[in-house]
Design a protein around this nucleic acid. Sequence first.
DNA 1: AGGAAATTTTGCAGAAAGTGCAAGTTTTCT
DNA 2: AGAAAACTTGCACTTTCTGCAAAATTTCCT
Lengths: 203, 203
Amino acid sequence: MADQTGLRERKKAATKAALSQATLRLSVEKGGIDAVIADDIAAAAGVSTRTFHNYFPSKEAALLYDFNELVAQMIGALRERVRDRPVWDALRDACISMRIDERFDLELLQCREQLIHGSPSLISYQATQFVAFFTEALGIVAEATGSDEDDMYPRLVLGAALLSMKVANEHWLAHPDRPLDEVIAEAFANFETGLARPHDHAP
Amino acid sequence: MADQTGLRERKKAATKAALSQATLRLSVEKGGIDAVIADDIAAAAGVSTRTFHNYFPSKEAALLYDFNELVAQMIGALRERVRDRPVWDALRDACISMRIDERFDLELLQCREQLIHGSPSLISYQATQFVAFFTEALGIVAEATGSDEDDMYPRLVLGAALLSMKVANEHWLAHPDRPLDEVIAEAFANFETGLARPHDHAP
DNA sequence: AGGAAATTTTGCAGAAAGTGCAAGTTTTCT
DNA sequence: AGAAAACTTGCACTTTCTGCAAAATTTCCT
């Protein structure tokens, strides 16, 4: 994606990163993305407001830029894994393979979680991205399970997996004392033997 | 809610309903809520644009007005049921008790589903409502299971239940040949014995 | 019924997001 | 260097949504 080609490409990448970072910084400073206006972000990154909107359709997109990158990668990770193991395992392994804990700074993640939690506009934006992701992943899952796309099963499996990942992530951000992959595995395990009773978790 | 008190109350309810219906009608006519502007909705309902925004914060809220009413009722339904049965059963029964199939016209639901599916702004809005609902329901589930609110289990159970309901609803809208409660029960059943293999469903 | 009080409607002004367009800059390529 | 391609910018414009104060309407009390 970030090909080390010409100066132009590098500049563009730098601008995009600067805009994204500026959005985060300003949002934290002002205690919420809604208190930040596009003009300020553009100014902070040293470009015009119009240019900001050339790079991102909204403040929300700017703030969650690298998160979206990550989500995009997960499609690939999933596609690889469904070839040589059961869907459920493929989903779990794909989630774990994202290595969010290694790729991002814990504080940054917590910070962003805070912002998302407190802002309807960010929740909204994320939901839209989620739906797009779900739709794409659904095709993979449906094919892997040999089911029709409007069967309930692939949707339930995929939904449960993404729910596990989301819940595990949130939990880990609040209690970063255990490794993330372990927490993800534990969340997934809850679906493996029936949900009726709480699943025992490792001490 | 719709107390048959004075004229004023009745007029307000009528206006609100008129605005909501006008939003739906115009959205269908123009093939998407994004093609409809607030001015048109207000005009169609015979009030000023400002008044439209007195009733609803957005077009999306107007379109999904009665859906939100329903979601609000589900909190009550759930709270009742967690008292005398296991959480999972309470969740399933609460979902079924909504009787969406009886309370709404099938065509209207399909119509709205179509609109939501094709509009990021509606997806966004619904997500925000969903998060609010999830948060409130989580308190109930956590208490009922005797777990802490930041344990993963209550979130997973609640998430799985709402996922089941959503998937069942979508499936039923696309294939309304079986009764909705049966479809919901089937979706829930997938989580009762482990997700590893597709759950057999009644022929 | 009549009039005061409470509530609702409405228009206006204004902030902010987001988009199209055309002109000005910068990078690339030959 | 110089033409071509790509990027940036300013400007005008549409739309959403909010605050405020003036009108209009409903309710309530006597």
